[in-house]
Amino acid sequence: MLSRMADSLYWLSRYVERAENLARSLDTAQRMTGLPSSYAGSTNEWESVVITAACKDSFDEIYSDATRANVLEYIVGSKANPCSVLACIATARNNARSVRTALTSEMWEILNDAWNETRTVDPRNLPQKDLSRFLASVKEASLRFDGAAYRTMLRTDHFWFQRLGTFIERADSMARLLDVKYHLLLPDDERVGGSLDYFQWASLLRSVNALTSFHWVYRESVQPWLVADFLILRPEQPRSLISCYKELNEYLDQIAEAYGRQGPAQRRVRATLSQLSNAKIDDVFQSGLHEFLESFIAQNNELGQAISQQYLS
């Protein structure tokens, strides 16, 4: 297939996934601010949304405070933010438009609908009710897009590159979310796993749609290292880092097989996957979760670049 087409497929899937993750973040912040501070902790949930989205610096250039209104404006759809929810949807839709022949009509219609429905949203004027509806519709669009891709695309390189975008983005956002929650938001004097702040951890799980499934897997109360174990190392959890890498490995394998050639991307994905497969959560905490996640984010980026160099340009 055309390199440009593979590139667009890869990126439009990243943008759809990113829009969903941002929407989940905002949704969680919204819930947390509804709790009394004795339950929710003293952290600023809105600020954590900005940090997780990796746009703290550009946000600070425009706003002095991470208030609800400011964060909503910036993350939902400020013109100054090229990675706002609305910008992600518009970019994904534009990419889709330029590679329409690579998408099934169902996938295109979902993106086109999402764009048509959300482009009139005013990020400075979002009452609670409208915000919830907006966030729900973004999550739903992403779910439908994913489902449509899974159910309607031919199993050829079109599909594989589309999947690669989804899982690179998902792994990146999961690692960032964990990093922020564990090490940036907890006050220094509070020992990780100390006075259990159930709602903090529960909110983290909820933001990746994993609260209920956590209980099914562990049958224990929510504890920080179990949460990390669940979201990093458990293959049952479909958003965990290891799950993302199993998928990435599988699709890169299929591409290599179809093209009859292995390359740096295949070697990188195997290396990271084997690290994750051999890791124990106790060791991860021992040597530092932050360092572990930081190095994972860097490796994930390098894999993205390797895919670009090998196939997309």
Binding site: M1, L2, S3, R4, A6, D157, F161, Y259
Partner: peptide, 8 residues
């Protein structure tokens, strides 16, 4: 000769 750039 005209070529297109593909993933292969």
């Amino acid at each position: 000769i005209v070529y297109m750039r593909t993933t292969e």
